[in-house]
């Protein structure tokens, strides 16, 4: 099948690639754009490891047709840090021991970022709701929830 051109913004970089119609966004991000931060867990929308933001809204990139990204703004964990400065969520995850094997972490971070962008002072229940589509096998979730609340507090200049 003839490839079609696709352009989108990936973490402030303009990306232009040719994709096979019907490709999913996760494959295009990883293989086409070379951003390996979104992970393929289940490839059927059940685990959340591939979560990316499209115009600020979390999407499961494994279930998203790549052509839907045309002209839109994609955010991944690869764009969270500014130079050597980690995003407060990344720092809180690291300092709060919120990752073990790390495979869910990129998806967790993007779900958390989407929440904090919209709801800077979330309740614990709102945090749990925001990451309810992200499976983690190692942590028991509690350190992740705590880390997101810590990051929210830090971004608001409070102590958690």
């Amino acid at each position: 099948m003839a490839k079609v051109p696709l352009t989108f913004t990936l973490n402030d970089a303009e990306i232009g690639v040719f994709v096979v119609p019907g490709s999913n966004l996760l494959d295009v991000l990883r293989r086409g754009a070379g951003d390996l931060t979104p992970k393929e867990g289940c490839a059927q929308g059940a685990c959340g490891a591939c979560t990316v933001l499209i115009d600020g809204v979390p999407h499961l990139s494994c279930l998203t047709l790549a052509e839907m990204a045309e002209g839109r703004r994609i955010s991944t964990t690869g764009g969270l840090a500014v130079g050597p400065e980690l995003h407060p969520l990344q720092t809180a995850f690291m300092e709060g021991f919120a990752a073990q094997c790390g495979f869910c972490t990129a998806g967790m971070l993007m779900s958390a970022k989407a929440l904090l962008d919209q709801t800077p002072n979330p309740t614990r229940d709102q945090v749990i709701e925001a990451i309810s589509g992200n499976l983690c096998r190692c942590t028991g979730y509690e350190p992740i929830v705590d880390a997101i609340l810590t990051a929210a507090a830090k971004m608001q200049g409070r102590t958690a």
């Binding site: 749990i128 509690e142 992740i144």
Partner: peptide, 17 residues
């Protein structure tokens, strides 16, 4: 065969420990 039929608790089932 997959996560849809293999149940695991999610963040809503955190247990105080």
């Amino acid at each position: 065969e997959d996560f849809n039929t293999y149940l695991m608790p999610g963040p809503g089932q955190i247990v105080p420990h």
